[in-house]
Design a protein around this nucleic acid. Structure first.
Length: 309
RNA sequence: CGCGGGGUAGAGCAGUUCGGUAGCUCGUCGGGCUCAUAACCCGGAGGUCAUGUGGUUCAAAUCCCAUCCCCGCAA
């Protein structure tokens, strides 16, 4: 099957690799432009671009997909299908119409739940016990197309975003390869999404990552795990910003002042919430590296007297 | 040249303002105590203070210069 791949971040890399290793003829890879700004203004290529170049696949990084020249390029590539995985751009109808079999998306949720940009974070944030990947037929709406192949996986207890992300990326790679096999055999059966069951997972805003201990411990723990390891849920301690990682609810704590440090040892620091408490295994203060909470407080013992806020 | 914090013992930090004996908590090793322990007591080992064998100085972790590396913010 001759295809064009569109994707940008690490999640898409797994799919690109799987397709390449399955022997598909990947005529070209479309990805976003190198981000010209980082600390020190470094130009960073998207992960998908790095792998594509490694494979010797032509890479295109158009500013948008509406330009006539881009459309011409796509048509000239004559793909049977376009595979999209976290490309980060809405595909206009003109692009959707190019391939014979249309455009197929690898989406990291069990649709119709969590349409949108940050489905994996949303699954953790909402305490889901099941997550997954849905291979879907793309249409003009945002993740609204017919479902072709859903694959689910259990969310482990206290699992963080990073771990689930990597697993779903791998599952996505396997699923898209399988879906293309089924497509070739005419075995794919589109199933419409029930729009009334749909929920959205919008892009993560900086404020989403701010932790408030004036909430139940379960929610606090989910929030911390939803942004672990990146971008990192944060709060303040002793006037400084501090990120929190490796969180789990702590049993048997009640009535403590929210934000108070109840204990700190090798297993982490226990912080009181509105109801219950959370145990945080790792922290990272501004300017510092991520480290075990135990190690952090060994060098900042005065902060043990402060409250998280 | 986007803004900013940092590099000191295996880990985390203090010391740098105002140059003058290398410190703290933990780990580690040895010993003691204990029914026992991640507890407690005593003792020891372990550091070219990121690099330049750079500059200033009688003397630099500390002041000056250059370089490398790590991280937060912003995008």
């Amino acid at each position: 099957m001759r295809l064009v791949f569109m994707g940008t971040p690490d999640f898409a890399v797994a799919s690109l690799r799987a397709l390449h290793e399955a022997g598909h003829d990947i005529a070209a890879v479309f990805t976003r432009m190198d981000t010209p700004k980082n600390r020190g203004m470094k130009l960073l290529p998207p992960p998908v671009k790095v792998l594509a170049l490694e494979y010797g696949i032509p890479v295109y990084q158009p500013k948008n997909l509406r330009g006539e020249d881009t459309l011409e390029t796509l048509r000239a590539l004559a793909p049977d299908v376009i595979v999209v995985a976290a490309y980060g751009r809405i595909l206009p109808q003109t692009v959707l119409d190019v391939p014979k079999y249309g455009c197929i998306n690898v989406h990291a949720s069990l649709l119709p739940k969590y349409r949108g940009a940050a489905p994996i974070n949303a699954a953790i944030l909402h305490g889901e016990t099941e997550a997954g990947v849905t291979i879907m037929k793309m249409e003009a709406g945002l993740d609204t197309g017919d479902m072709l192949l859903p694959v689910s996986t259990a969310v482990l207890p206290n699992e963080s975003f990073g771990s689930l992300h990597d697993r779903l990326a791998a599952i996505g790679g396997e699923a898209i390869v399988r879906a293309l096999e089924m497509l070739a055999r005419g075995e794919l059966h589109p199933v419409p999404q029930r729009d009334e069951d749909a929920t959205y997972a919008p892009m993560i805003a900086a404020d989403d990552c701010r932790v408030s201990f004036e909430r139940p411990a379960e929610q606090v723990a989910c929030q911390i795990r939803a942004y672990d390891p990146a971008p990192g849920a944060f709060c303040t301690l002793g006037g400084g910003k501090i990120k929190l990682f490796a969180a789990s609810p702590e049993e048997g704590v009640q009535g403590a002042r929210p934000g108070a440090i109840l204990s700190a040892d090798k297993k982490g620091v226990v912080i009181a919430c509105r109801t219950g408490a959370v145990r945080v295994g790792e922290v990272q203060a501004a300017g510092g590296k991520k480290m075990a909470a135990d190690a952090f407080f060994r060098g900042h013992s005065a902060l043990l007297q402060e409250d998280f806020a």
